[in-house]
């Protein structure tokens, strides 16, 4: 029977609309779960740790980051990393060139430029236990995977990857 109501289209004529909507809901749920798990930014599956073979430096980092989203590296240096009262931690230029560095805590005494790395020097004449250096920054890459290399002077290097979402 033809309806008297003047409508452009009838809901029953477009069964795909409801199907697409339901698929969309499932997609929403999956994205929310992925975000909660830490696959789209910070979260349990994003948190990771890398350590050099000599256990001189351990870095807590996030695997998944976001473009211009505040994040940090937590660098734990062991007492054996100190040489001549100085703690020298270096990071690869490839990493530093692709971030907006906001803060290094504690502030290094000086920074030494190298061709493929930058070394931060801290005074640590009486270090007897593990110490923490925090690097706060914002990634400047979108949809990019970068390899971060780091280390302390005189110890083997460590490396890990990070992915930045737009």
């Amino acid at each position: 029977m033809k309806s008297e109501l003047e409508l452009e289209g009838h809901w029953e004529d477009h069964p795909w609309e409801l199907r697409v909507q339901r698929i969309g809901w499932i997609l929403f749920a999956l994205l929310i779960l992925a975000a909660l798990a830490g696959l789209l930014g910070h979260g349990p599956l994003s948190r990771a740790t890398a350590e050099d073979p000599a256990s001189s430096l351990r870095i807590e980092y996030q695997r998944f980051e976001r473009y211009q989203g505040p994040t940090e590296l937590r660098l734990h240096a062991a007492p054996q990393a100190v040489r001549g009262g100085k703690l020298k931690i270096w990071l690869s230029r490839e990493f530093l060139d692709n971030i907006e560095l906001e803060q290094v805590v504690p502030q290094p005494v000086t920074a030494e430029l190298g061709s493929d790395r930058q070394t931060y020097v801290f005074d640590a004449p009486h270090l007897t236990a593990e110490t923490l250096v925090v690097l706060r920054y914002k990634p400047t890459l979108k949809f990019a995977r970068t390899t971060v290399r780091a280390g302390v002077e005189g110890a083997p290097e460590l490396s890990f990857w990070q992915f930045a979402y737009p």
Binding site: F28, A35, L40, G41, R66, Y67, Q68, G69, Y165, P166
Partner: peptide, 21 residues
């Protein structure tokens, strides 16, 4: 907050709509 990425904006929107649904 201070995360102005597209991913964050998309996730906030999807979460709000998801809760509403």
């Amino acid at each position: 907050d201070s995360d102005h990425s597209m991913t964050n904006a998309a996730l906030v929107i999807i979460t709000l709509l998801g809760i509403s649904i």
